Amino acid sequence: MANVIGSPERYVQGREVLKDLCKHVQSMGNAPFILVSQSGKGRVEAPISEGAKELGTKLVYEIFGGESSRNEINRLQKAYEASGCDVVVGIGGGKIHDTAKALAYYAKAPVVIVPTIAGTDAPCSALSVLYTDDGVFEDYLFLPRNPNMVLVDTEIISKAPARLLVAGMGDALATYFEARACQQSDSNNFIGGKYTVTSMALAKLCYDTLISDGVKALTAVHAGVCTKALENIIEANTYLSGIGFESCGIAAAHAIHNGFTAIEETHDCYHGEKVAFGTLTQLVLENASKEELEEVLHFCLDVGLPTTLKDLGIHQINKKELMQVAEIACGPNDTMGNMPFTVTPQMLYDAILATDALGKRYQAKASS
């Protein structure tokens, strides 16, 4: 089997690049169909219109329904076909990106992804995560190609809520550890091949960047400014993590996230927050070294990522519900099978509780 790496055709990152969106889109189409939230539209309409006016570009905005579900994709496909547009642009967070990519696939259109937050690694991948209309994980939609372009305006991201940047760091935190697990188990990546030296290096660089610049980037966002550290974390969350997870594969951390979507109390947590707890649980499953586990725990505590079940909104432990999480995560259609050893629901249940206990212990140490 071949070693394969996947990447968007072009990645553009910089301050105020959103005003150049229409110029970049010209190579793909003349009429962008812009999928965005209602609040997001208010933040991005002015700079996009500035560039559109200069070029005479027709713009059609469509408000996102809120969930990356098959029903929403079907609704949007009808709206796209009626619009006369010829390129899909998804502006916002991870679920908008996943929906825009799926819409473009079914509509046979090019797609441009524009994150307004650095909250997930969804922008660069040839993958859409699908949920039910109620927000419960349903399936992965594997796409034949990566987005035609990913455009990242760091000025906009620097003004987004700090929690969203932290959630992106939580998602990115899993990249190297899941890549390492897939390397050890010789599992396939999301492109139907094996990891490359380059993709493993990007996954490791992603982790190293989080450790070196994560706290500094969070401090910059709290101050409402865009520093070099923040630029680096935006790239790590968006590009390094996106290429790393897709071209190396994912394992326990994301499977655990998918399991937690079945518990209603966790629905107020972002994707990356649940993935961060899943990463800690994966390290417990692996019996990682004390030094490695402490480094990840301290990072999570420093930036405010969940380390306990209470942090995920679970204040009362329900054995039946946690076992359901474990059973979903270990299901045959998820990625727990990419671990280098067999993980049973009971093993995972125990690891979740052990992670919760560790998190409580280190939180107590940090506050003393």
Score class of each variant (00 low, 15 high):
residue 89 V to H: 02
residue 91 I to E: 08
residue 92 G to T: 00
residue 93 G to P: 08
residue 94 G to T: 08
residue 95 K to V: 07
residue 96 I to D: 07
residue 96 I to T: 11
residue 97 H to R: 10
residue 98 D to I: 10
residue 99 T to I: 01
residue 99 T to F: 00
residue 100 A to E: 05
residue 101 K to G: 01
residue 103 L to P: 04
residue 103 L to C: 01
residue 107 A to S: 14
residue 108 K to F: 10
residue 109 A to E: 00
residue 109 A to C: 02
residue 109 A to W: 09
residue 110 P to R: 10
residue 110 P to W: 07
residue 111 V to M: 03
residue 111 V to I: 08
residue 112 V to E: 09
residue 112 V to T: 10
residue 114 V to N: 00
residue 119 G to N: 04
residue 120 T to H: 09
residue 121 D to I: 08
residue 121 D to W: 11
residue 122 A to T: 07
residue 122 A to E: 00
residue 123 P to N: 12
residue 124 C to Q: 00
residue 124 C to I: 04
residue 125 S to E: 00
residue 126 A to I: 10
residue 126 A to S: 14
residue 127 L to K: 05
residue 127 L to N: 05
residue 129 V to W: 03
residue 129 V to M: 10
residue 130 L to H: 02
residue 131 Y to N: 08
residue 131 Y to G: 07
residue 132 T to M: 12
residue 132 T to I: 11
residue 134 D to Q: 14
residue 135 G to C: 08
residue 135 G to M: 05
residue 137 F to R: 02
residue 137 F to Q: 05
residue 137 F to C: 02
residue 140 Y to C: 06
residue 140 Y to A: 08
residue 142 F to T: 12
residue 144 P to D: 13
residue 145 R to K: 15
residue 146 N to I: 03
residue 150 V to Y: 01
residue 151 L to D: 08
residue 152 V to M: 07
residue 152 V to G: 05
residue 152 V to H: 05
residue 153 D to F: 06
residue 153 D to I: 04
residue 153 D to M: 11
residue 154 T to M: 03
residue 154 T to Y: 02
residue 155 E to N: 14
residue 157 I to W: 03
residue 159 K to H: 14
residue 159 K to M: 11
residue 159 K to D: 05
residue 160 A to Y: 12
residue 168 G to F: 04
residue 170 G to F: 04
residue 171 D to T: 12
residue 171 D to G: 12
residue 172 A to D: 05
residue 172 A to V: 13
residue 175 T to D: 04
residue 176 Y to V: 10
residue 177 F to Q: 00
residue 178 E to K: 05
residue 178 E to S: 09
residue 180 R to C: 11
residue 181 A to D: 15
residue 181 A to C: 15
residue 181 A to E: 13
residue 184 Q to D: 14
residue 185 S to Q: 12
residue 186 D to H: 15
residue 188 N to V: 10
residue 188 N to A: 01
residue 189 N to H: 04
residue 189 N to C: 06
residue 189 N to M: 10
residue 189 N to R: 06
residue 191 I to F: 14
residue 192 G to D: 10
residue 192 G to P: 02
residue 192 G to S: 01
residue 193 G to F: 00
residue 195 Y to E: 08
residue 195 Y to H: 13
residue 195 Y to T: 07
residue 198 T to E: 13
residue 200 M to C: 00
residue 200 M to N: 03
residue 202 L to E: 11
residue 203 A to M: 01
residue 204 K to T: 09
residue 204 K to C: 07
residue 207 Y to G: 08
residue 207 Y to K: 10
residue 207 Y to C: 03
residue 208 D to F: 07
residue 212 S to G: 06
residue 212 S to I: 05
residue 212 S to N: 15
residue 214 G to Q: 08
residue 214 G to W: 12
residue 215 V to C: 11
residue 215 V to G: 11
residue 216 K to L: 14
residue 216 K to F: 01
residue 217 A to S: 11
residue 217 A to E: 09
residue 218 L to H: 12
residue 218 L to D: 06
residue 220 A to D: 14
residue 221 V to I: 14
residue 221 V to R: 14
residue 222 H to G: 13
residue 222 H to E: 15
